[in-house]
């Protein structure tokens, strides 16, 4: 990891950091998809077109995915903020925890 400050949303293909940067890119995409699926689940749960068992199964799956994301982030020294995407006028993908 480079101690040098650099724009947080830029992927730098530097040989020393390429592994971490690529990991960050991949995890960001996975996290984006996970968030979308989660929102879709919440929406369908609110509409009532899921059975209780389906809700439970989806909930457990998403929860485990979240845990797995946390583990991967730890292993590569990333914080949830590193995976945040700025969606411009839509705000950021994840809540900024200031």
């Amino acid at each position: 990891m480079s101690p040098v400050e650099r724009p947080s949303r830029r992927i730098v293909a530097d040989p020393d950091t390429v592994e971490r940067d690529l990991t960050r890119l991949v995890l960001t995409v996975v996290e984006l998809v996970r968030q979308l699926v989660e929102r879709q689940c919440v929406r369908r749960m609110e509409q009532g077109d899921l059975t209780d068992d389906q809700i439970e199964t989806l909930g457990v799956t998403l929860m485990r995915l979240e845990e797995a994301m946390g583990d991967l982030c730890d292993r590569f020294g990333l914080t949830p903020q590193d995976l945040n995407l700025d969606l411009g006028p839509l705000g950021t993908l994840l809540p900024t925890n200031d």
């Binding site: 919440v42 209780d52 809700i55 199964t57 989806l58 909930g59 457990v60 799956t61 998403l62 929860m63």
Partner: peptide, 10 residues
């Protein structure tokens, strides 16, 4: 039902 509780929290 931890999965349901998780989704409710979310």
């Amino acid at each position: 039902r931890p999965g349901t509780a998780y989704l409710q929290r979310r």
